[in-house]
Amino acid sequence: MKKIALIFLGLSTQIFFAQANRFIYQVTMKTDSTNRNDIKTETAYLDATPEKSIFYGEKRLQRDSLFTRMRQTNGASFDRSQIQNLRSNIDYTVEKDFKTGKNTFNSRIARDQYSYEEDRPMEWKILPETAKIGEYKTQKAETDFAGRKWAAWFTTDVPFQDGPYKFSGLPGLIVKVEDSKGDYSFDLKETKKIAEIQNFNQSGNVVKVKRKDFVKQEALFRKDPLSFMQAAMGTRGGGGISAPQSRGSMRTPDPNQRRQMETRMAEELKKNNNPIELN
Rank of each mutant, 00 (worst) to 15 (best):
T68K: 14
I24N: 06
G248R: 10
I194K: 01
P159N: 10
N201P: 02
D144I: 08
N199I: 05
W153S: 04
K271Q: 12
F23H: 02
G248E: 07
N279D: 15
G10R: 06
R60H: 08
A20K: 00
D97P: 03
K223I: 08
A243Q: 10
D183T: 10
A219Y: 12
F17A: 14
W153L: 01
K193I: 07
F98Q: 00
K149D: 10
M233F: 09
N274H: 07
D213A: 08
D119P: 02
T34A: 13
A243C: 11
K3H: 15
P50I: 04
N205V: 14
G240I: 10
I109C: 00
E268K: 08
L170A: 02
P164Y: 04
E42P: 03
A20Q: 00
A266E: 02
K52S: 09
R22V: 01
N85M: 15
A231C: 05
G182K: 07
K216C: 05
Q72V: 08
F17D: 07
E277G: 03
T156G: 11
P128N: 08
A131R: 14
I174P: 03
G182D: 04
G147E: 11
D119N: 15
T138K: 02
Q202F: 09
F214G: 00
S168N: 09
Y165K: 03
